[in-house]
Amino acid sequence: MANALPRLLEIAPAPSRPRHKDWGEVEGILAVGLPDDYKELIGLYGGSHWDDYLYVLEPDCPNRHYDLLKWAEYQFDDLEDLWTVEKKPAELETEGAVVIPWATTDNGECLYWLVLPGVEPNEWTVMVNEVRGPRWEHHSVSCTQFLASALTGELRSDILSSLFPLATHQFRRLGAV
């Protein structure tokens, strides 16, 4: 998957203070590596809110509501319960396939990486799930490609709000609450 971080920097210049993470610790907790473009995204933007709608989750985010590690833990349990009453999307029927959340929205939709056995993190694609229903979308792009393409309107989702993106992009780094 291509890293679209240069496109994001054109859309919204990054804050001047980069964030540093102990990715070894984070990946140890998750028991899986994470895509390089995501690590670079967090290093530049941190946990962030885009166009008053989409939140990028960050491990140990200053705003505890958008902590990637907590979201991953809760989403795994919630989805396991969901699969007992709802059909899994076809992409998750492969033995060992899982999803890991990397973003959410004001409405509660969740954006995930599709993690398939034998597929390296830099090749993970994006799944989008509606908040109160069984609809899922699969997009064969990296998380930075998804974010950049959604912000420029090149990528459209039938699940995400029709009000996203804004005509004039807005970005803010998430702080403590």
Rank of each mutant, 00 (worst) to 15 (best):
A2K: 13
N3H: 00
L5H: 04
I11P: 02
H20E: 12
W23N: 04
G24H: 11
E25Y: 09
V26C: 06
G28D: 02
G33N: 12
D36L: 04
Y38S: 04
L41G: 08
L41M: 13
L44I: 01
Y45P: 02
Y45T: 01
G46P: 08
S48I: 06
D52Q: 10
D52P: 00
Y55C: 02
V56A: 09
E58S: 11
E58W: 02
D60H: 13
D60G: 08
D60R: 08
P62T: 11
N63E: 10
H65V: 05
H65Y: 11
Y66P: 02
L68I: 04
L69Y: 07
K70W: 11
K70C: 08
A72I: 06
Y74Q: 08
F76E: 14
D78K: 07
L82E: 15
V85I: 12
V85P: 01
K88T: 07
P89Y: 01
I100M: 14
I100Y: 13
P101V: 08
W102S: 03
W102F: 15
A103M: 12
T104I: 11
T105C: 05
T105Y: 02
D106C: 05
E109M: 00
C110I: 15
P117K: 05
P121T: 01
E123I: 00
E123A: 08
T125K: 06
N129H: 14
V131R: 09
G133A: 10
P134F: 00
P134G: 00
S140F: 00
C143R: 00
C143Q: 00
T144W: 09
S149R: 05
S149I: 01
L151Q: 07
G153T: 06
G153R: 08
G153I: 06
E154Q: 05
L155P: 06
R156T: 14
I159M: 10
S161N: 09
S162C: 04
P165I: 05
A167P: 10
A167D: 11
T168G: 13
T168A: 13
T168Q: 15
Q170F: 09
F171G: 02
L174V: 10
G175W: 07
G175F: 05
